[in-house]
Simulated scan of single mutants.
Amino acid sequence: MANYTFRCESCGEFTLWYQGMKGNKREAECPECKRKAKRLFKPPITFRMDSRVKKRVERGMEPRIVNKKDLPKGGKRKPTVSRPWQAGHS
């Protein structure tokens, strides 16, 4: 289960747990006043992360939404290691 934290302007922060990945996770209804609340992006527990990654996460950068058309163009690369035990490799 994934948990998401939201902030209601009148009631404060609350957390909801979702079982599926479908649906809008940017807004939720506040369980107390029933107003719309916006999602907060909180960093995960970072004490075991690489220090560079940890610093970047703790700066509070929100995730970017990337469209498929904006991804770099690249074809499939042939594997550099021969793996005859896997299907499709020779």
Rank of each mutant, 00 (worst) to 15 (best):
M1W: 07
M1S: 15
M1Q: 10
N3W: 08
N3Q: 14
N3F: 10
Y4H: 15
Y4P: 04
R7Q: 13
R7I: 11
C8Q: 00
E9T: 11
E9V: 05
E9P: 09
E9W: 05
C11Q: 10
C11M: 05
G12T: 00
E13P: 05
F14Y: 15
F14G: 03
T15E: 12
T15R: 12
L16C: 08
L16M: 11
W17N: 13
W17K: 14
W17H: 11
Y18A: 13
G20L: 07
M21R: 12
M21W: 09
K22I: 01
K22V: 03
G23E: 01
G23I: 02
N24R: 02
N24A: 03
K25R: 15
K25P: 02
K25W: 03
R26T: 10
A28G: 10
E29R: 15
C30V: 06
P31R: 03
C33Y: 10
K34M: 10
K34G: 04
R35W: 08
K36Y: 07
A37R: 00
A37F: 06
A37G: 06
K38L: 09
K38P: 06
L40A: 03
L40D: 01
F41L: 00
F41N: 01
K42Y: 05
P44M: 06
P44N: 10
I45P: 09
R48S: 14
M49V: 06
M49H: 11
D50N: 15
R52M: 09
R52T: 14
V53S: 11
R56H: 13
R56Q: 14
R59Q: 14
R59H: 08
G60D: 04
G60Y: 02
M61W: 09
M61G: 11
E62L: 00
P63D: 02
R64D: 08
R64I: 05
R64L: 10
I65E: 03
I65G: 00
I65P: 00
V66K: 13
K68Y: 12
K68Q: 11
K68W: 11
K68G: 06
L71Y: 05
L71G: 04
P72F: 06
P72E: 07
P72G: 03
P72C: 05
P72V: 04
K73D: 13
K73L: 12
K73E: 11
G74I: 09
G74M: 11
G75L: 09
R77Y: 05
R77V: 08
S82Q: 10
S82I: 09
R83P: 00
R83S: 01
P84I: 03
P84D: 02
P84Q: 03
W85L: 00
Q86D: 02
A87H: 08
A87W: 07
A87F: 07
S90L: 13
